[in-house]
């Protein structure tokens, strides 16, 4: 019986070595250790042995069974490892192949500029005010100190619908409307929107374009407040190292009026083609709200003052992104629009 056992063990060992898959190995296990296997048979045959030999033999059978089981496990692990290895080899891919693109659309570049400006001012407690694109002559001109026959009306040839209604030539009528509605209360607003002028479309003119304006009205609003606000805006839009300068100018709805230049973001002020060798780039117009405008909206200009500023998102986008032709903003060429995918912090 002892010999039988040892022979059996050697047989099993051989079979285990010959197994090359987990399945074959499992077959071996079932064949030898299973309920119908020879080892079980041997254990069943123990009863025929003399009583004193039983413990000894029992121990031997168990020992063999355990060692076979251990070897089986060991072999199984190796075979499993090999199988995984093979699977991994088969599953290997070329990681340099292109990925499945996530098709994202993006904002129009002008929306990008407008929202950047809106968000900047929202963080300073401003509200966004909007108004109609088709306006009354009163809000577009008269309420802004541009009475009928005023020479400065020549500055903006307009699309009239009737004698008294026109496509707004600037977003300033939103300011006039807001002041009228606020009825003497303090104001901090930003007014973005489309505007229209009778211009032939070319590289620098568009009969439709966008504007974004700001208005602050309250007690003790000073020109220094305007300058501080614009300085922060310039740094936000064009970089922290930008300097600003104000130059006197003229707008009928502000007095004093200024134009704001920023130090050239390309050359830093030493002079280049972007700033036309001057080191400065004109960005926006601004000023202290004209007393007539305040008065027409029901404010007392002796007690209440305000500042206003306005700029063209097209111009800012053209400068910021180096766009050379204003018409690109309105032809909607995918090759143009899709360049504005990238987010900027």
């Amino acid at each position: 019986m002892k010999e039988q056992l040892h022979e059996l063990k050697e047989q099993v060992m051989l079979k285990i070595q010959e197994s090359h898959t987990v399945k074959e190995l499992n077959d071996v296990r079932v064949a030898y250790l299973g309920k119908k296997g020879p080892i079980t048979d041997l254990l069943k045959g123990m009863g025929k042995l003399p009583a004193e030999e039983r413990p000894k033999m029992g121990a031997l059978v168990n020992e063999i069974r355990e060692s076979v089981t251990a070897i089986l496990e060991e072999r199984k692990e190796i075979l499993e490892q090999q199988a995984i290895q093979k699977q991994l080899e088969n599953e290997s891919i070329d990681v340099t192949l292109p990925g499945r693109p996530v098709e994202l659309g993006n904002h129009h570049p002008l929306t990008r500029v407008v929202e950047e400006i809106e968000d900047f001012f929202i963080s300073m407690g401003y509200e966004i005010a909007e108004g109609p694109e088709v306006e009354k002559d009163y809000y577009n001109f008269e309420a802004l100190n541009l009475p009928k026959g005023h020479p400065a009306r020549d500055m903006q040839d307009s699309f009239y619908i009737t004698e008294d209604i026109l496509l707004r030539t600037h977003t300033s009528p939103v300011q006039a409307r807001t002041m009228e509605v606020k009825d003497g209360a303090a104001i901090k607003i930003i007014c973005p929107g489309k505007v229209y002028r009778r211009d032939s479309d070319d590289a620098t003119h568009s009969h439709q374009f966008t504007q974004i304006e700001g208005l602050v009205v309250g007690e003790n609003i000073r020109m220094s407040d305007l300058k501080g606000t614009l300085d922060l805006l310039a740094k936000k839009l064009f970089g922290a190292e930008r300097e600003i300068r104000l130059r006197p100018s003229f707008f009928p709805f502000t007095e004093p009026s200024v134009e704001m230049d920023i130090s050239c973001f390309k050359c830093g002020g030493s002079g280049c083609n972007v700033c036309k060798k001057t080191g400065w780039i004109e960005i926006l117009g601004a000023g202290m709200v004209h007393p007539n405008v305040l008065e027409m909206a029901g404010y007392n200009p002796e007690e209440v003052t305000g500042f206003a500023f306005g700029m063209g998102p097209e111009r800012i986008a053209m400068l910021k992104y180096g766009v050379e032709d204003i018409r690109h903003f309105y032809t909607n060429d995918i090759r143009f629009i899709s360049q504005f995918h990238r987010s900027e912090a």
């Binding site: 659309g105 993006n106 129009h108 929306t111 903003f329 909607n332 629009i337």
Partner: peptide
């Protein structure tokens, strides 16, 4: 996946 266009009102 749509990009924003801006066309003329007129």
């Amino acid at each position: 996946g749509l990009s924003q266009a801006l066309t003329y009102s007129l």
